[in-house]
Amino acid sequence: MKKLIFLWVLAFVSCATSKFDKVNGVSFVASGEELSQQHIDPVLDVQANYAAIMPFGFINEKNSSELFFNMDRQWFGERREGAKQYIEKLHQNGVMVMVKPQIWIHRGEFTGNMKMPSEAEWNKLEESYEKFILLFAELAEETQSDIFCIGTELKTFVKERPEFWKELIQKVRVVYHGKLTYAANWDEYAKTPFWSELDYIGVNAYFPLCEKQNPTIETLTQGWQPWKTKMYNLVKEVDKPILFTEFGYRSMDFTGKKPWLVDRNQEEVNLEAQARATQVLFDEFWNEDWFAGGFVWKWFMQHDKVGGHEDNRFTPQNKPAESIIRKQYAQVKESRL
Rank of each mutant, 00 (worst) to 15 (best):
G202E: 04
L154K: 04
A273M: 02
F194G: 05
L209N: 05
D263S: 15
V29Y: 11
K228M: 10
M114N: 09
E322Y: 01
D283C: 04
V43D: 03
P208M: 01
L135Y: 04
V238Y: 01
V174Q: 13
A120P: 05
D41T: 15
P101H: 03
F20P: 08
P215I: 00
E61V: 04
I59S: 00
N93T: 02
E78R: 13
P316W: 09
K240R: 15
R264H: 10
E127L: 11
F300K: 12
V9R: 10
E167W: 03
A48H: 00
H177G: 08
S27C: 14
I201H: 01
S251W: 09
I325S: 08
Y86K: 07
N24I: 08
W290M: 11
M252A: 15
K212F: 00
L271W: 02
N265W: 05
W297Q: 06
T156I: 07
G77A: 04
Q170N: 13
A292N: 10
E188F: 13
M231S: 05
R161E: 09
N233T: 06
Y86T: 10
E334H: 08
F291I: 00
W8K: 11
G308T: 09
A190P: 02
K124N: 15
I217K: 15
I217L: 15
A184S: 15
R336I: 05
T216Y: 05
H309S: 14
V175K: 05
E160M: 01
E127G: 15
G256F: 01
T143E: 11
V296T: 11
P42I: 00
L209F: 01
T152H: 07
F300T: 01
Y50I: 06
V306R: 02
E211K: 08
K179R: 11
E237C: 02
D146S: 11
G108W: 03
G151Q: 06
Y200E: 06
F110W: 15
P320A: 02
A292T: 04
G32C: 10
N287G: 15
E246P: 09
V235H: 09
F69E: 08
D21V: 06
P241K: 10
V43M: 14
P193T: 02
L337V: 09
A137Y: 07
K19F: 08
L35F: 07
R250P: 06
G223P: 03
G202C: 05
P55G: 06
P316E: 10
M231I: 01
V262M: 14
S64I: 07
V174Y: 12
V26K: 02
Q144R: 10
Q47N: 14
M71Y: 11
L10C: 14
R313D: 12
K2F: 04
D187P: 00
N93L: 00
F254I: 00
G178L: 08
F207K: 00
C15Y: 13
Y86C: 08
N185P: 04
